[in-house]
Measured scan of single mutants.
Amino acid sequence: TEEYTYTDKEKADRAAKEWANRGYTVTVTQDGPTYRVRVG
């Protein structure tokens, strides 16, 4: 499991979509002003 942190919702959504397109399980959680994209 890897985790990426973004401050921009659009970038987080785009990253999540790209990982999902590659067949990974993706979870996006909002943590205050940041968005965490957990992959795998």
Results as ranks from 00 to 15, higher is better:
T1P: 10
T1V: 14
T1F: 15
E2D: 11
E2L: 15
E2W: 15
E3T: 11
E3W: 11
Y4K: 04
T5P: 04
T5S: 10
Y6V: 02
Y6I: 02
Y6W: 03
Y6M: 02
T7H: 11
T7A: 11
D8H: 05
D8K: 05
D8G: 03
D8Q: 06
D8L: 05
D8E: 08
K9A: 08
E10Y: 09
E10K: 10
E10L: 10
E10P: 04
E10G: 10
E10H: 10
E10R: 09
K11T: 14
K11W: 08
K11V: 12
K11A: 15
K11S: 15
K11F: 08
K11Q: 14
A12R: 02
A12V: 03
A12Q: 01
D13T: 10
D13L: 15
D13A: 10
R14V: 09
R14S: 11
R14L: 12
R14H: 11
R14M: 12
A15V: 10
A15Q: 05
A15F: 07
A15G: 03
A16G: 05
A16M: 06
A16P: 00
A16E: 05
A16W: 03
A16F: 04
K17I: 11
K17V: 09
E18A: 08
W19R: 02
W19K: 03
W19L: 10
W19T: 02
W19G: 02
W19D: 02
A20Q: 14
A20V: 12
A20W: 11
N21W: 06
N21P: 01
R22N: 12
R22G: 09
R22D: 10
R22A: 15
G23Q: 02
G23M: 02
G23F: 02
Y24K: 04
Y24E: 03
Y24V: 04
Y24P: 00
T25P: 07
T25F: 12
T25W: 12
T25D: 11
V26Q: 00
V26F: 01
V26R: 00
T27K: 06
T27R: 05
T27D: 06
T27N: 07
T27L: 08
T27Q: 09
V28Y: 04
T29F: 13
T29G: 04
T29K: 06
T29R: 06
T29M: 11
T29Q: 08
Q30A: 09
Q30F: 07
D31A: 06
D31S: 07
D31N: 07
G32L: 02
G32A: 02
G32F: 03
P33E: 12
P33Y: 07
P33W: 06
P33F: 07
P33S: 09
T34I: 15
T34A: 09
T34Q: 09
Y35Q: 01
Y35P: 00
Y35E: 00
R36A: 05
R36Y: 09
R36I: 15
V37S: 00
V37Y: 00
V37H: 00
V37D: 00
R38N: 08
R38H: 11
R38W: 07
R38I: 14
R38S: 12
R38M: 11
R38F: 09
R38E: 07
V39Y: 02
V39P: 02
G40F: 13
G40M: 14
G40L: 13
G40W: 13
G40T: 15
